[in-house]
Design a protein around this nucleic acid. Structure first.
Length: 263
DNA sequence: GGAGTTGTTTAGGA
DNA sequence: TTCCTAAACAACTC
């Protein structure tokens, strides 16, 4: 589920806990989400601290507890919830941060999600993340250079690279290519200058649009987006009504319109 | 019961 | 070295 805008939405779920102190931390130690962090360290490091900040960068989230940082990635099925203070962890509740008046819960069935912890407000794993697509530092030059570097890759695969397009996931990549009318299997190196600029512009615009619609209230994109038609076999292109195609491109299920994007 | 799933890492080939 | 692909991870839904 979680791409850029969904991550922004979920990060706010724990906002009611801002300013309050952590009473107790419950970790399901053997869960796979702890492959990148030590649960004992998280328990020790968060207890007694106040939640003082919530930030996101692409698909990454960071929760600041005083002088410590808890990094969180939702993977494919991760969710953040707020439950009552004495919430008994359910089957997939692998981390429960208890405060006096509520529990902050990280739930993840498939456990592709991951945690990070560091007793610092500026851990390298946070500060070294690439610039956000919606920021000024996401420049045309950076994108053009990247298209050149990955010239042999399908555009779909390029858009999924978090080192350059942080937050873009499967559906957003399809939506961007559909807006540009580029075939998802087209090689990155074949875009001319004008096409490269459109690719850059539409990537930024889609991220902005998605954040606006989904980031705050988890709204549903309009039917004029590919999003509303791409999941179902037999779905039609909202632009010209052609039956959408589906295939694995760049390792992921990809939907596109054979009429306006070709083949 | 089998196929498919909105993510990332890693191993190995080119 | 650098780039590219496929598989693995795990549990749920259709």
């Amino acid at each position: 589920m979680p791409e850029l805008a969904e991550v922004a939405f979920y990060s706010k779920k724990w906002a009611p806990g801002l300013g309050d102190r952590v009473v107790e931390v419950v970790c399901r130690d053997r869960a796979r989400i702890y492959r990148t962090a030590d649960p004992a360290q998280i328990r020790r490091g968060l207890k007694g601290k106040r939640l003082t900040g919530i930030e996101t960068k692409g698909k990454q989230m960071r929760f600041v507890f005083g002088e410590a940082s808890l990094g969180l990635h939702l993977g494919m099925t991760g969710k953040l919830l707020v439950k009552k203070g004495d919430h008994e962890p359910g089957k997939h509740d692998h981390l429960v941060i208890r405060q006096e008046r509520r529990s902050l819960v990280f739930r993840d069935a498939r456990m592709f999600g991951a945690l990070k912890f560091e007793a610092s407000t500026e851990p390298a794993w946070w500060t070294s993340l690439p610039p956000e697509v919606v920021s000024r530092s996401f420049t045309l030059k950076a994108v053009a250079d990247y298209l050149r570097r990955r010239k042999g890759s399908p555009l779909k695969a390029v858009l999924l690279q978090q080192e350059r397009f942080p937050g873009v996931g499967n559906w957003m990549a399809d939506e961007i290519l559909w807006r540009c009318k580029f075939h998802p299997a087209r090689k990155a190196g074949t875009l001319d200058e004008e096409e490269g600029e459109m690719f850059w512009r539409e990537t930024k615009q889609l991220c902005r649009d998605a954040l606006k619609i989904i980031g705050d209230k988890y709204g549903r994109p309009p039917t004029s987006w590919l999003f509303r038609h791409r999941w179902r076999r037999g779905g039609k292109c909202p632009r010209d009504g052609a039956i959408l195609m589906r295939a694995t491109i760049g390792g992921r299920t990809t939907a596109w319109c054979p009429e306006c994007q070709g083949k």
